[in-house]
Amino acid sequence: MLPRVLALGNDPWDPTNRFVTSWLISPYVLAAVRALFSLYAFLTLLFNIGYQCARPDIGGCEASRASFSYFTVLTYWGLAFYLAFAAVHTFTYARYGAPLLARWPRSLQALHALFYSSVTSYPFLVTIVYWGVIYSYGSAWFPTIYGGWSNISQHALNSFFALFEIFIPRTEPQPWIHVLWLIVMLALYLALAYLTHATKGFYTYSFLDPGKQGSLVAAYVFGIAVAAVLIFGIVKFLIWGRRYVTEEKMGKKGKFMFRSEAEGVEMVGPEAFAGK
């Protein structure tokens, strides 16, 4: 029962290197793009910390410390780290013919797959909640260039990075058991939000404040949980559709790195695997 709940499985792990290859671009290019996206995300997060610390009028370093209680910021850190690890795995596959991921314990491989599910689901949830619930329409655009750039980076580009991971790599639809863990992580964040209020005296999001929202808080929490399940299902369908169109209809099985034992050189090409 435990292996099933953790989605460990007993079959060979990613036998055709779907997590580190693409149907469209070479492994080296895929690694470079992932590294570039990761660098941008990390620079955004670090610049935000530095900018806030340098501006006591907007909260100073206390605001930076408080930012780690926000779901937006936590998921953006997660996206940055996933892209960084994915870039390393992809580069090691391109350079040596086998990704670092292939040498990890099976438990860490399963967690990497769950990590993928989170970074292709949570960004859309953040974007929808921010622009649909939090952002105040009818008022002026962000008063500063920094405010506009920071919010676009964390509430719009996050979904762009997620779309890249959905449509460009050769990943397969993730197992439904991942929905359970995505909901568990949302519940843990909810606990963190109320712990933050108990220890720091503020609500990270106004829709979690029962003093302002009353019984609507439960509706917001339930609605976000339902949205997370729906988003996962849509992402699962999109990945299935991408694989069907690119592999079955277009015949683009993937671009792989392989080492020729006869010549001792590395080559790249759209070779098709007979299996998955």
Rank of each mutant, 00 (worst) to 15 (best):
W176V: 15
G275T: 14
L216A: 15
L157R: 02
N48Q: 07
L111H: 04
L101I: 08
R55E: 09
V129M: 06
Y82S: 05
P169K: 01
R55G: 03
P56A: 04
T16V: 09
T75G: 04
G264D: 08
I49E: 09
T44I: 06
P105L: 05
T21R: 04
V217D: 06
P105Y: 09
S117P: 09
F68S: 11
L186F: 15
F237Y: 11
F142T: 09
P3H: 01
S117V: 02
P15C: 08
F160Y: 15
A162S: 11
I224P: 00
L24C: 10
N158F: 02
T75D: 00
W176F: 14
S118W: 12
R243N: 12
A31M: 03
P3C: 01
N48I: 01
V184G: 00
Y82R: 07
A191Q: 11
L8V: 08
W13E: 13
L182H: 05
L6H: 08
A198S: 12
T127I: 02
D57E: 13
A84G: 12
W13N: 11
T72W: 03
A110K: 01
L108S: 13
L36R: 09
K236C: 13
E261D: 14
V179I: 15
V29P: 01
L230G: 12
Y220V: 11
L238C: 07
N48P: 01
Y122N: 04
I168S: 05
F42T: 02
F258R: 11
F81E: 01
Y135T: 05
A41F: 00
V129F: 12
S139L: 13
G241A: 15
W13T: 12
F47N: 09
P56I: 09
P169I: 03
D11T: 10
V29E: 03
F256Y: 13
R106P: 03
R170A: 08
V5C: 10
S69E: 01
K212V: 13
F91R: 10
I49F: 12
H197I: 07
L195N: 09
P270V: 03
L190T: 14
P15L: 07
T204G: 08
A98P: 06
L24S: 02
W181L: 00
T199E: 09
A35V: 07
G233L: 08
L186Q: 13
C61H: 00
P175D: 00
A274G: 15
I168R: 03
G275M: 13
F81D: 04
P173T: 06
A63G: 05
A218H: 10
L192C: 10
K200V: 14
L190V: 11
V226P: 03
L39G: 09
Y93R: 01
P173F: 01
V235D: 05
T199Y: 07
L188R: 06
S159V: 09
P56W: 07
A80Q: 00
V268R: 04
F115D: 00
D14I: 02
Y205C: 02
S136N: 14
S153M: 15
F160G: 14
V268K: 07
L39T: 06
Y130E: 03
F142Q: 05
G97R: 06
F115E: 03
L83D: 02
Y205I: 07
F167K: 00
H155I: 03
S69Y: 09
W77M: 01
T246N: 12
